[in-house]
């Protein structure tokens, strides 16, 4: 057994400095297109190329709806003038309505918040990236986030997947079983708009049965984007900083 202790102690600490400093390692994020100004006909063509309608051409300006982007790369590969690319990962954005404006969890949850992760029809990638939050690179425990298997202890419901019909009732029950105050974080394009799978008879186009408070786009969003979403929902990341480079987000919504 002691071998493992020694091995563990000898392993260098790879943990990211995020959120204190941005993470610049290559391959930590797939990136996402950002609003770009292009000649009018090129813009229209690019918007058409997008398989999920994440791009919209307004004259010379192509705006991006991150909630629809599935990283098909069709707006950058095989085209003469590609979209500008945002290599960051602070994509999470609050989602509120006039009737129910976004409010982060209170100060009591800044030191420690418990998360229930529910898979409502995910392809495995978002779930894997959520799991990676526990690995030594991202280590969300250092920020006071803990995953719990029961909604009774959970403050945050983290949903991945498009919301399949077979999971609807279980998802609803899990949300109802959580004590107030509670927040819902929808992770991944599937959970926001259904991606390429929905809507269909077997699945909703995203999680609409529950009041989603924070949306983390991406297919899948890299771990740091999810972490950013968690910081946002606990009020530890400024909502304004989110969507840097994706300024059109709010309008596109």
């Amino acid at each position: 057994m002691s071998n493992w202790v020694i091995r563990g102690l000898r392993t260098p600490v790879p943990t990211t400095r995020f959120p204190a400093a941005p993470e610049r390692a290559r391959g930590a994020s797939p990136g996402m297109p950002r609003a770009t100004v292009l000649p009018e006909e090129v813009a229209a063509d690019l918007a058409r190329r997008c398989p999920t309608g994440a791009l919209a051409a307004h004259g010379e300006r192509v705006v991006v709806d991150p909630a629809r982007c599935v990283h098909s790369f069709r707006c950058v590969r095989g085209v003469a003038s590609p979209m500008d690319w945002n290599h960051g990962n602070e994509w999470a954005a609050p989602r509120g309505t006039d009737a129910r404006p976004f409010g982060p969890l209170g100060a009591a949850f800044r030191g420690s918040a418990h998360i229930l992760v529910v898979d409502a029809g995910d392809c495995g990638a978002c779930l894997a990236e959520v799991k990676h939050l526990n690995n030594p690179y991202y280590n969300m425990h250092r920020l006071g986030f803990f995953v719990t298997p029961t909604p009774r202890n959970a403050d945050i419901l983290l949903v991945v997947g498009s919301g399949t019909v077979n999971m609807r009732w279980a998802l609803r029950k899990a949300y109802e079983a959580m004590p107030a105050p509670k927040r819902v974080v929808a992770v991944g394009t599937c959970a926001l708009t259904g991606s390429v799978f929905a809507p269909s008879f077997a699945s909703d186009a995203g999680i609409h049965d529950l009041p989603v408070d924070v949306a983390v786009p991406g297919s899948p969003p890299p771990p740091l984007a999810i972490l950013h979403g968690l910081l946002l929902v606990t009020g530890r990341a400024p909502a304004a900083r989110s969507g840097s480079g994706l300024v059109d987000t709010a309008k596109a919504d």
Binding site: R7, T11, P14, R26, A28, P30, H132, P136, Y137
Partner: peptide, 17 residues
């Protein structure tokens, strides 16, 4: 954790490539 470190290394290699 050791395996998780290797997995993340491979993911980043894939991402960078």
């Amino acid at each position: 954790s050791q395996a998780a470190i290797l997995e993340e290394q491979l993911l980043r290699l894939s991402g960078a490539l």
